[in-house]
Amino acid sequence: MSNPTPPVGPGLPETQTLIPDTTTAPGKEKESKQGKQGKPASLWTDAWYDLRRRPMFIISVIIILVLLVMSFWPSLFSSIDPYNARTCDLSTARQGPSPGHLFGRDNLGCDVYARTIYGARNSIVIGVFTTLVTTLIGGLLGIIAGFRGGMVDTISSRVTEIFFAIPSILGALLIAATFRGRYNSILLVIIALSVLGWPMVYRIMRAAVITAKNQDFVVAARALGAGAGRIMFRHLLPNSLAPVIVVATINLGTFIAAEAALSFLGVGVQSPDISWGLMIADARNRFLEAPLPLVFPAVFLSITVLAFIMMGDAVRDALDPKLR
């Protein structure tokens, strides 16, 4: 039996009988609150929401930001200009830490701290530009090969396999040694690493495009008369970019380490330019009697590479829903 509507008495205002019941269940209240906040609707916004809650990503970003500031404005961290020969004093060579010289002095009496700070610029510049070049070349060839297929895909894949058969460091060493002295040493290292660094990006982009080009949105774009260029760069590229960004982030740290290896072997960055690999090479012969000129640039190099790898792993986990 249903409850009758309560009568309207003379002492009860009529409007009170018309007030609706606004009470909701706790679950519905929470659901409506989430709806007002707005749940991330795209892969990128969802990934950013996930990244902000990852301590590994936050720590790596802070380290990278400090390194970038150090690269562009090294004078904020050191008042000594290591490019000025007058700041080096041969009589204080291999001297330990002292006031004004936190990391001591190297074999030529130069301040190790100042050289470490200024060395960040060349190491990071080489890593960033090499990553950009390899991503552009590999990404462009990968999206064309994956979309076109057929003979274009076959030829480009065979050429890529030839580059894959060459060890990266050995090939870069050969290129840098062959053209040493003909070009600026920093530019030569970027070219040497880029020539052999793009095939991995090519494979990642090609596989992503092959998977995406059979999706309904590409079929619909073709049915509406979209051209090949519009389909590739307006529809396929945004939906195939996530794995490429992950690989590029990790490759950046790898290229910084590769530059250090080339400089250590004597075919990378050359004096008077400064890089961490060159500092390690200069200090290796006197490591037992003066370890600090080698230890500090090696520590900075390791932290930088680790920061980029940590950020790449965090981005990969955020962009891949299966790993969350």
Rank of each mutant, 00 (worst) to 15 (best):
L288R: 12
R121W: 13
T45F: 08
S60L: 05
F308L: 07
V246L: 04
F287M: 07
D317V: 06
T116L: 03
T5W: 03
P26I: 06
V299N: 03
C88M: 02
R53S: 11
S71D: 07
E29W: 15
F72S: 06
R203N: 05
L278G: 01
P272H: 08
A281H: 01
R324Q: 10
L265V: 06
A212G: 13
L292N: 01
R54G: 09
G268N: 06
T23A: 15
R286W: 03
T135V: 04
V66F: 11
R222H: 14
S156P: 02
R234C: 07
I280K: 00
R182Y: 13
K322I: 04
S275W: 01
M279K: 01
F129T: 12
P167W: 08
G312I: 09
D282P: 00
I19G: 12
I117F: 04
T254S: 14
T17Y: 15
R158T: 07
R234A: 11
F179T: 10
P4G: 13
A177V: 02
P74W: 07
T130A: 15
Y49Q: 12
G197W: 10
N184A: 09
R284V: 11
V247C: 04
V61W: 02
A85S: 08
L140W: 13
D21N: 15
V125D: 09
T87P: 00
A318W: 04
R180M: 08
R180V: 06
S71H: 07
G171R: 06
F233P: 04
L301S: 01
K33N: 12
R324H: 11
N122L: 05
G127A: 06
A221C: 06
